[in-house]
Design a protein around this nucleic acid. Structure first.
Length: 932
RNA sequence: GCCCGGGUGGUGAAAUUGGUAGACACAAGAGACUUAAAAUCUCUCGCUCUUUGAGUGUACGGGUUCGAUUCCCGUCCCGGGCACCA
């Protein structure tokens, strides 16, 4: 860095990187200061969970952020690139159990180590804004916000279902349930209903959905996933009156708590009703039974004097709560003996308990139309002996007005009853056979039949008519339904933000008043793995009611850790504020949204949806002006995946082994045939290839790479390996090549510097033809790299373009005076073009080429139109779409002369075999296709 | 099961709006330099064949088009998410 020192001939990354980082630290190069005179660029990467060491996914994520930050700084923006720690979470408690270290200490020492790793990678992070979410200075504000939302009714309490480990007497996360068993105890897991606090995200469902259309900077894929997750559907919610039974058992109290929303299967006593929601009201005349969830009040009541049903409901409670498990389960059911009245036909249909009906969606009950719903169909086939015949009520639209035949006779214009299973269209001879399912049976493109007054109606008309008739009977109406459910935030865990509620016997749930905040999480605790330690600490939970002053009990549940990550990006604007959650600096940095957010695609739904929700909440509490959407531009990084290896332990448990500790044996085609542990040479099991994670122990620590080759090589290599949104299977094959390239760039620059620096000012027309070609390539590359960094965010092709440029440089004779100047221009440009990716070597090379100058403060190279001019271009010639030769034409040649040249070209003449051209397609600047 | 992605040489990949398939690299092979090694440099490198040429080829099967890795339909495989991993 010292211009007085001669340039070293060898590339020594360790020295260069230390010097560059010292220089940046001394000059405060990454400090972000609000400056209203400059456009701001807030570049945010998802903050890491401090799991112990960085893995390659982190390096990839933060290098992308650093490239974009440095590039935009060179474009004149006032850049903010912050970093912090998503520090609450389960792994800290697991580590505590395993190694007998307190979660707080474990977390803070991980943060210290990972911070040094991040610093060694040379990211232009403003470390003055760093914070960890596990400190009271941070989480006090979410407690404060929680109490505000509680008072506004946006936080409420109701029962929710959790995984219960009956041996360890503890609630388990879905991740801790493996094949239906507790990961530590091996016990079969049960569902259990417990009271929890919920955030009313459904109140924002409509806005969360509609605003997706105003996020052009988001990948279409992510917007689509969120749209499907929110899942707006318009349908009909209606009721089946329950048939009163003289022998009915006394109604058992419903399990649901207060505030559980409309319906929840509850029944009024006057005339009890079973409510359902359907998007296919047009098939209502085909209902043959109604299915309810095992937790539904009707099921509970029916089970009271039906031991067989009670046993079935108990069986439904076995297993975890994860939707994937429920959805792949074998569909089972049992009749309750309770009947309900079909609201339109007046027929009685039986209520069944189905293990596939979710209590948490809609009313916890569904109407079943086996003829037009695949799941209902399979269920009806399985229980055909106990259920009525399947009743088709929709035929293909093309059959409208035509005669078709059923088992019982001809059907025409609704004058005859249908009976399953085969319908044949007389005129077209098409058949529909309900003996085996066909997707078309569920199509909305059809006409109602066997539906009384609705016969002949299409989907929309039938839904309208049926909804109107239900409304007239006061038994239902059209309704918009969301798949999105309210967000349960209570966790029965220690290492999280305490929920600021006090339970008082006389006053109920009382939010902790501001002056008593924060509720500080005690850090000296004993973790046993059985229940929350807080619930065993009277010094924590014993307290006085803020309202009446009487003895009360503090809530011992903590918040979902998604709470912390849903607003941290706003806190970076003002991390030092001790009197408010956020302040006016948010208006500067977050105006129009955070300019770029970068993180893994695995966060496409939950984290990003919760962050959008929080931003709207905070806006409506009046904290952040009119900011409604947090992230203007989103780059979802593909996952860095690696193979997993394990050994089976007792009770279905697994010991996960890091890929670094394993030798993989491959066959002659390079396919893995087996693997052994390096330590003992004995075999291990090869699992799937999955995202690098703590739980599967397949994260690869980049430290060895950095130690051996330096940060720049690690950064260059991971950026060159693949485009950022693509998932990347980790392999360090090729890292040598990245290092080789930097060495070659260093040597090339050294050779030029040794020959003497020159001024790069020269006349374009003094260049030889080959020199003009190089200069054209140089300036094309400037445009290409800026476009790749700025618009395309595709860094591998930017690097490839610079590699091509260096290859061309090496092949071009630059010995004369003009050539030396062009060499100077090219090497200066390369140092700046690569600076965002490899800032240390970029800084060093630029300082050698332009003594005393700072690459990071330089303007990004801009292409000179004079250098890009080209007289002649090459066009490909195709005959019948096959490449047969090429022609060189003037850049501005017209279509007729291009056609003539192409027809006269050697390849065209040969392959046209004397046949006349039927058609000639000229694609300007590309090719000519002759069709014969 | 449902929702979202992906599948191109031995490997990572490129082809930006439907227009030269395999840029740029890695690995491998051959050669130069060297006492030797490393480093460096040069060349070869999708597959097949009758090899100064031609055919064929982007998971698989169809389709649209003068022209398809790209668009459409179907199938298979892999990855992510599924609300308590973060």
């Amino acid at each position: 860095m010292n211009p007085a020192m001669p340039m070293q001939d060898k590339y020594t990354p360790a020295d260069i990187e230390r010097a560059a980082q010292d220089h940046w630290n001394k000059t405060g190069a990454a400090r972000a200061v609000e400056d209203a005179t400059k456009p701001k660029y807030y570049c945010l990467s998802m903050f890491p969970y401090p799991s112990g060491k960085l893995h390659m996914g982190h390096v990839r994520n933060y290098t992308i952020g650093d490239v974009l930050s440095r590039f935009h700084k060179m474009q004149g923006y006032n850049v903010l690139q912050p970093m912090g720690w998503d520090a609450f979470g389960m792994p800290a408690e697991n580590a505590a159990l395993q190694n007998n270290v307190p979660p707080a200490g474990w977390t803070y020492s991980n943060i210290d180590y990972m911070r040094t790793q991040l610093k060694s990678l040379g990211f232009a992070i403003d470390w003055e804004r760093e914070f960890a979410t596990c400190t009271p200075e941070y989480y006090r504000w979410e407690q404060w916000l929680f109490t505000r939302l509680y008072e506004k009714g946006l936080v409420y309490k109701k029962f929710g279902t959790v995984n219960w480990d009956p041996v360890d007497h503890t609630v388990l996360a879905n991740e801790q349930v493996i094949d239906g068993r507790g990961w530590r105890s091996g016990a079969l897991i049960e569902k259990r209903e417990i009271p929890m606090y919920y955030m009313k995200i459904t109140a924002y469902a409509e806005e969360l959905l509609s605003e997706l259309d105003n996020l052009p900077g988001w990948p279409e894929q992510v917007r689509l996933m969120q749209k499907n997750w929110i899942g707006k559907s318009t349908g009909v919610r209606f009721a089946f009156p329950v048939v009163a039974s003289g022998a009915a058992a006394p109604s058992s109290p419903p399990l649901q708590g207060e505030g559980s929303g409309a319906g929840m299967g509850s029944a009024d006593n006057a005339e009890e009703k079973l409510w359902v929601f359907t998007t296919r009201a047009d098939t209502i005349m085909g209902v043959t039974f109604v299915a309810v969830a095992a937790e539904h009040p009707l099921a509970t009541r029916a089970a009271a004097n039906n031991p067989e049903l009670a046993a079935f409901i108990e069986e439904c409670k076995k297993g975890g709560v994860a939707e994937a498990d429920i959805a792949t389960m074998e569909k089972k059911g049992m009749p309750t003996g309770i009947f309900v009245t079909h609201p339109l036909t007046g027929e009685q249909v039986e209520v069944w308990v189905g293990n596939y009906v979710l209590m948490s969606y809609g009313d916890g009950a569904v109407m079943a139309v086996p003829a037009h719903d695949q799941r209902d169909f399979e269920f009806a086939k399985k229980y055909a002996d106990k259920l009525p015949e399947i009743k088709p009520v929709i035929v293909p639209a093309s059959w409208k007005g035509k005669k078709f035949f059923t088992q019982t006779g001809w059907f025409e214009d609704g004058d005859l009853k249908l009976s399953w299973p085969i319908l044949t269209n007389e005129e077209t001879d098409e058949s529909v056979d309900w003996a085996s399912w066909d997707e078309s049976f569920a199509s909305k493109e059809g006409v109602c039949v066997n539906s009384g007054k609705y016969d002949g109606l299409s989907y929309e008309a039938a839904v309208d008519a049926i909804a109107a008739d239900l409304a007239a009977k006061d038994l239902g109406d059209k309704k918009v339904q969301f798949r999105l459910r309210d967000w349960g935030i209570s966790r029965q865990r220690y290492w999280g933000c305490p929920i600021p509620i006090i339970h008082c016997a006389s006053c109920g749930d009382v939010p902790v008043p501001d002056e008593q905040l924060p509720v500080v999480l005690p850090e000296n605790v004993e973790i046993t793995g059985a229940g929350s330690p807080l619930a065993k600490m009277p010094e924590f939970y014993e307290c006085k009611c803020p309202k009446c002053g009487g003895d009360a009990r503090r809530e011992t549940d903590t918040m979902d850790t998604f709470f912390e990550s849903s607003w941290y990006f706003l806190r970076y604007a003002c991390p030092d504020n001790t009197t408010a959650m956020v302040d006016e600096r948010v208006a500067y940095w977050c105006k129009g949204g955070i300019d770029q957010y970068i993180g893994g695609i695995e966060h496409a739904i939950l984290h990003l949806l919760y962050s959008r929700f929080f931003t709207k909440l905070m806006r409506d509490v009046g904290l952040i002006g009119d900011l409604g959407e947090p992230f203007a531009n989103l780059l979802t990084q593909g996952m860095v995946v690696a193979p997993t290896f394990y050994r089976d332990l007792d009770a279905g448990k697994k010991l996960w082994i890091n890929p670094a500790d394993v030798d993989v044996v491959t066959d002659e085609r390079g396919r893995p045939t087996g693997a052994t542990l390096k330590a003992d040479g004995l075999p291990v099991v090869i699992g799937g290839t999955e995202k690098m994670s703590k739980s599967k122990n397949n994260g690869v620590d980049p430290q060895a790479l950095i130690d051996q080759y330096g940060a720049d090589t690690a950064r260059l290599f991971i950026m060159f390996a693949s485009p950022p949104d693509q998932s990347l299977e980790w392999s360090d094959a090729g890292v040598e090549g990245a290092y080789r390239f930097l060495r070659r760039l260093w040597k090339t620059t050294y050779d030029h510097v040794q020959a003497g620096l020159v001024d790069a000012n020269f006349e374009q027309n003094s260049l030889s033809t080959v020199q003009a070609d190089l200069r054209r390539k140089l300036h094309q590359t400037m445009g290409k790299v800026a476009d790749d960094y700025g618009r395309r965010k595709q860094f591998n092709t930017a690097i490839a373009a610079v590699m091509e440029l260096l290859n061309a440089y090496d092949k071009t004779d630059l010995a004369d005076t003009t050539g030396r100047k062009l060499a100077q221009e090219t090497l200066e440009s390369i140092a700046l073009l690569l600076f965002p990716i490899v800032p240390h070597i970029g800084q060093a090379l630029y300082a050698e080429l332009k003594p005393g100058q700072d690459a990071g403060s330089a303007a990004f190279p801009k292409a000179d139109p004079a250098a890009l001019k080209q007289d002649e271009i090459e066009l490909m010639v195709q005959v019948n779409g096959k490449l047969r030769g090429s022609i060189r034409v003037a850049a501005e040649a017209d279509k007729a002369s291009i056609e003539a040249a192409a027809l006269a070209s050697e390849g065209a003449v040969k392959f046209m075999e004397g046949k006349p051209a039927k058609k000639v397609v000229v694609v300007p600047g590309r090719l000519v296709n002759i069709v014969v």
